[in-house]
């Protein structure tokens, strides 16, 4: 029964990891760029939500009305003002620039907020749970999982059914030809980044309501998101959800062995998948 409980908690945790992964995967899919500061932007989003909540008194979930557009704007500006100047055949410049962003965000947050652990108080929902058989499901993890599923479904619609999504895919295929068809590819890249940051904002609030965070909580979130992407298979958002679930379950099962084994178990499963199925569990079919 303990095992079943661990697996169920792991599946729900996987929803959160899929949220970390979705924005990362989206940006890589459209422009082959990996934002090393992805996790740090999640933490930045959490601090922004914290400030919004303390200034307005809004419930953390309602604060998203402000945090999502704000983060989207930051993402758009980051792409247009900084990353756009580093894009090209060489992957190194954008990688190193986002690495620099990570260092700056961590230390700026440290200077502003100290290393004290913070938390977004979501009220009674934090501890509420639904008994199902002999296990109990936390309401917050359930909401997180539901949001992850809804968000991925929404991103799929945007990607495969909308004008912006067509421009994303066309630009990713062949930016030069897209440009000749009248697509403003720089705007398209920035839109993809803004969308990624909107997802970051949602992930940030759900993370911050669930657990403590501090200025250095970012890198681990990047790694979990990344592992979910690779386990699930590149270019497939539903695969990414599956990847997040595999990672979440690996971690909760690992924690059953020993608390110090939790994160390590996730990393080991990541390497196992890389060894056995280098294209991930559900690679995009070409």
């Amino acid at each position: 029964m303990v095992l079943v409980d661990a697996v169920v908690q792991g599946v729900l945790l996987g929803g959160l990891y899929a949220l970390f992964a979705a924005g990362l995967s989206l940006v890589f899919g459209v422009m082959r760029l990996v934002n090393i500061a992805h996790g740090d932007f999640i933490v930045l989003g959490a601090y922004i939500a914290l400030m919004v909540v303390s200034l307005t008194g809004l419930h953390p979930f309602l604060s998203l009305v402000l945090v999502v557009p704000l983060m989207g704007l930051i993402g758009y500006a980051l792409q247009r003002l900084v990353l756009e100047r580093t894009m090209g055949a060489d992957v190194l410049p954008p990688l190193l620039v986002t690495f620099g962003c990570a260092v700056i965000i961590q230390n700026a947050l440290l200077a502003l907020f100290s290393t004290d652990a913070q938390r977004l108080s979501a009220g009674p929902i934090e501890t509420a749970s639904l008994p199902v058989g002999s296990i109990s499901l936390g309401v917050l993890p359930l909401i997180t999982f539901g949001v992850a599923v809804a968000l991925i479904a929404g991103l799929e619609v945007v990607f495969f059914r909308s004008r912006a999504g067509r421009a994303f895919r066309a630009t990713s295929d062949d930016a030069e030809t897209a440009e000749a068809m009248g697509v403003d590819t720089r705007h398209v890249f920035a839109l993809a980044m803004a969308l990624s940051f909107a997802v970051i904002a949602v992930a940030a609030v759900l993370l911050a309501a669930r657990s403590n965070f501090d200025p250095f909580a970012g890198p681990a979130r990047l790694l979990y998101g990344f592992e979910a992407v690779i386990i699930g298979g590149l270019g497939n958002l539903w695969g990414t959800l599956a990847g997040g679930i595999v990672l979440g379950v690996a971690q909760t099962l690992g924690a059953q062995v020993s608390p110090s084994f939790q994160i390590l178990a996730g990393h080991l499963v990541f390497f196992l998948i890389l060894a056995l199925r280098p294209r991930g569990l559900f690679p995009r079919m070409d």
């Binding site: 067509r166 421009a167 066309a170 295929d173 062949d174 030809t177 897209a178 068809m181 009248g182 697509v183």
Partner: peptide, 15 residues
């Protein structure tokens, strides 16, 4: 140089 991720119709719609 068609967009390989797009269907025939989508290639046209995009343009």
């Amino acid at each position: 140089r068609l967009f390989r991720s797009l269907s025939v119709e989508e290639n046209l719609v995009l343009a």
